[in-house]
Design a protein around this nucleic acid. Sequence first.
DNA 1: ATGGTTGTTTAACAA
Length: 259
Amino acid sequence: MKIASFNINGVKARLPALLAWLADAKPDVAILQEIKSVDDGFPREPIEDLGYTVETHGQKGFNGVALLSRLPLEDISRGLPGDETDEQARWIEAMVMGDVPVRVCGLYLPNGNPVPGPKFDYKLGWMERLKARGEALLASEEIAVMAGDYNVIPQAEDCADPKAWEGDALFRPETHAAYRRILNLGFTDALRAVNGTAETYTFWDYQAGAWERNNGIRIDHFLLSPQAADRLKACEIDAEVRGREKPSDHVPIWVDLDA
DNA sequence: ATGGTTGTTTAACAA
């Protein structure tokens, strides 16, 4: 089962690029972030025409996540548990019914800048709730993945210029500690499991020629439960997508599971 | 070098 994650930075602006990538990469499941659309505004039909079921959790203007699947979905749920007052659309999950059922969770973790301030507090609170959801998933012993735009640069080797990120919400010590607490529950960072510490990024800013200079960061991650990690066959980043016409500032990352 | 770009929505905000 090939599962991909792609922060598309606006589904309306990205639709041609999204359709071209789907037709080319052919993931069984695609998790999208930053659809920046309400559910009713999401262009379902051209995606359904490629054979995908479409489930969205949208919001006006910003945020918004979606699940696209060529396999049946069950037990779909929207919104990260743990705070009834949280209005932001950053989480969608479902059971993907392939030969073996796989729990797929798509997430768009808050950016958190500027630091300090309410946005950083919201980020850290959201990460605590993510940890709680992760604990429950591990207790279920399901084949489970939590994937998406984490807005976390895990370590210095995950960015081209670590000095430039000092103090940023994506690289703060508090952010690193919260991310490690989640990993240390027993999740596997799929990309690092297959390629060690090789330099590899998932985001290049639109500004200052970041792509041309390979001034990137690795912030889109697949975290796997032990049952999913045991079935990991491949994890790759489709970096060349960043060089295409009218690209997102993120590129797709995907895993292939023996499932 | 304290800039620069893009998307959503129309003056900012978010990233």
